[in-house]
């Protein structure tokens, strides 16, 4: 393949203590693509996602064998600056989790902690820009300084996306970002993902196959910690090569 690669995972085995959660997973994720990860719950797709920005480091006893490379650089090498890595690889969680502060402060949080700017005008600019990018600006511009907790579920999730965008990441990891939302909010998030693709590399974990089919360019199917099949979304859904994939997408599976 001649196309560029953003993230390369090769031979990844992941362990929680003595429990192995990933078995020899290899995958190449292309820049400015949306890559969807599907599979039944407990199949390792979230673990895989969280190993890309080393969020699993927070879990005692968790360890990864194998290689994860971001732009050719080993994410798990000792010289890797985890904090900087997480800035480059943003994350959206399953449950929207805005901090109990104002919407403005939520978006500005990452900018502030990373010391990107101290000037109020620049900060205002970043907040507006990212809120627009997250298609939330028009809904919150009149109540920027009110608690983010007063926003609806869908708005909160888009705020979390804006918050992640504000630190100018290159990659966005989304862990079932719409699983707790109603269909209309879900549609908005999906539209947003489609727009964001132009700028960011997106990896989305979802248990909703229609969603994977709608938003992604490539899809990986996980089962019991193994990457069973990885292909262009269209091909994977129309002509799966693997029997297990077929069973899963046709719903003959748990």
């Amino acid at each position: 393949m001649g196309s560029p690669v953003k993230i390369t995972v090769s031979g990844a085995n992941f362990f929680y203590g003595s429990n192995q959660a990933l078995h020899d997973v290899s995958m190449e994720i292309r820049p400015q693509f949306v890559t969807a990860l599907i599979g039944p719950s407990g199949c390792g797709k979230s673990t895989f996602l969280r190993s890309l920005n080393r969020m699993n480091d927070l879990i005692p006893g968790a360890r990864l064998e194998g290689k994860v490379e971001l732009d050719g650089e080993n994410v798990y090498s000792d010289s890797m600056d985890v904090i900087h890595l997480r800035r480059r690889v943003g994350m959206i969680f399953q449950k929207s989790n805005p901090f109990p502060m104002s919407s403005y402060d939520n978006v500005a949080y990452g900018v502030r902690v990373n010391g990107l700017t101290k000037k109020r005008i620049e900060l205002d600019e970043v907040v507006e820009k990212t809120l627009r990018a997250a298609a939330l600006w028009d809904e919150v511009k009149d109540r920027l300084h009110r608690s983010a907790m007063s926003l609806s579920g869908g708005q909160q999730q888009r705020l979390c996306i804006a918050r992640a965008l504000a630190v100018e990441p290159e990659v966005l990891l989304m862990d079932e970002p719409a699983s707790a939302l109603d269909p209309i909010s879900t549609a908005k998030i999906e539209e947003l993902i489609y727009d964001l693709k132009r700028t960011y590399t997106i990896i989305i974990v979802t248990h909703n196959m229609q969603q994977a089919a709608r938003v992604s360019d490539e899809t990986g199917f996980f089962l019991s910690g193994r990457l069973v099949e990885f292909n262009e979304t269209k091909k994977l859904f129309t002509a799966p090569r693997n029997r297990e994939t077929e069973d899963y997408i046709t719903g003959r599976f748990g």
């Binding site: 196309s3 560029p4 953003k6 292309r30 820049p31 400015q32 693509f33 732009d71 650089e73 010289s79 890797m80 600056d81 900087h84 480059r88 100018e168 990441p169 290159e170 879900t186 549609a187 999906e190 539209e191 489609y194 700028t199 960011y200 229609q210 089919a213 709608r214 938003v215 992604s216 360019d217 262009e232 979304t233 269209k234």
Partner: peptide
């Protein structure tokens, strides 16, 4: 929601613009 991918040919991005501060060396 429309099924976008079914309506659209897959076009892998050819130009890759890293969205980072150029002063910062990767890593």
């Amino acid at each position: 929601t429309k099924f976008r991918n079914s309506e659209r040919e897959l076009k892998p991005a050819t130009t890759f613009r890293p969205n980072v501060d150029p002063n910062v060396v990767a890593g």
